[in-house]
Design a protein around this nucleic acid. Structure first.
Length: 350
DNA sequence: CAATCGTGGCA
DNA sequence: TTGCCAAGATT
């Protein structure tokens, strides 16, 4: 095996991070392999998301749906509700699609090869490689943010991302060993997460200290270069929070496509410069002084909150009344939960 | 290729 | 407060 990969694997044997979905290196050496379903689930959840944020969600999902068949049989709304708060909700929609494809088209078994994995909804180049390597020990190369950073430093690559990706992928592939590819994939990512960090990397204790070109050049902390991103605009909107006399709340399921697609939310306006919207029903509307502020990936949102109490026989033009006993604020995406937190005090039913 | 798509933690 | 960042995929 290549010396450099071996050094990283030896470091991983001593410093592998413990995670609920991970089989530690000492067990993998004894032939223990992780459940592909759990690996796939973790990889989808970890897309652009921290390990700390994923842990409890992964446990919740595997507790409620222990197998891919269980997940495939789940109600859409239940899965979206369970995902609420984790963000990037297209992942949850594709997660369910993928589970159903695995059951109907692949006999309930995850494909083992990269090409077939790539055909699954929500599975791109990174996730396909991660599942193939970690769950099936195939010599695939994972290229995530960690690996991009590690490779750009080891080889002192100054080409800015994302243009540098093909180059970094080639470098990463050249290092990928044929032995223990699953542990190796996890090892590079652990290295990036704990040693070769974005700011102040711990080069002094790095297993790849000697071959690292950026450390030699003193450029490690400024790599990888990235194309500058523009700052985000502020948009405004209106949210209508309606409570019926029997305690029910007026909510609507958002369209499948677009922001917060498929998630539960308060009826409201579009979000833009000067939002206008008709209330979801005729009522005596009260405007809260406080607004709900939230930052998405590409814009800030400032939501004006309107509240109203309506009779038990009220009929809405938009949305559906959800009974008080059924409604769970935790099933809302964060921005909608912020609105609830601000509005609920005004809508207490005796 | 560039834009879209969440959230929470941290300097 | 602001900006950056985290195991990307899709269009």
């Amino acid at each position: 095996m290549r010396e450099q990969a071996l050094q990283l694997l030896q470091w991983y044997d001593r410093h592998a991070r413990a995670m609920p979905w991970r089989v530690p290196p000492e067990d993998r050496k004894n032939g223990v392999m992780p459940d592909p379903y759990g690996v796939w689930l973790s990889e989808v959840m970890l897309q652009q998301t921290t390990v700390a944020a994923v842990r409890d969600y992964w446990r919740k999902f595997t507790d409620i749906w222990p197998t891919v068949a269980d997940l495939a049989a789940a109600e859409d709304a239940e899965v979206m509700a369970a995902w609420a708060g984790l963000g990037y909700y297209a992942r949850a929609r594709n997660l369910l699609k993928c589970a159903r494809v695995v059951v109907t088209d692949h006999g309930g078994q995850f494909p083992r090869d990269h090409a077939t994995l790539l055909t699954l909804p929500g599975v791109g180049p990174y996730t396909a490689a991660a599942v193939a390597a970690i769950a099936f020990d195939q010599p695939e190369t994972v290229l995530d943010g960690n690996v991009e950073r590690v490779m750009s430093r080891i080889h002192d690559v100054h080409t800015p991302l994302p243009a540098a990706k093909p180059e970094l992928m080639a470098l990463a592939q050249a290092l990928t060993p044929v032995e223990r590819p699953g542990d190796y994939a996890q090892a590079v990512m652990d290295l990036g997460a704990t040693i070769c960090t974005p700011k102040s990397p711990a080069c002094g204790i790095c297993p790849w200290r000697d071959p690292c070109r950026a450390r030699m050049a003193g450029t490690a902390s400024e790599l990888p270069k990235k194309t500058p991103k523009k700052k985000v605009p502020t948009r405004r909107g209106i949210a209508y929070v309606t409570r019926r006399a029997d305690g029910a709340w007026l909510l609507e399921t958002r369209p499948e496509k677009g922001l917060l697609g498929g998630m539960l939310g308060w009826p409201g306006s579009d979000w833009g410069d000067a939002p206008v919207a008709d209330p979801p029903l005729d009522a005596d509307w009260y405007r809260l002084d406080a607004t709900a502020r939230h930052t998405f990936t590409h814009f800030h949102l400032d939501l004006t909150i309107m509240t109203a109490r309506v009779p038990a026989d009220a009929v809405a033009d938009r949305g559906d009344f959800i009974p008080h006993g059924t409604f769970r604020p935790a099933a809302l995406p964060t921005v909608m939960r912020k609105v609830y937190d601000l509005a609920s005090g005004q809508l207490i039913i005796d």
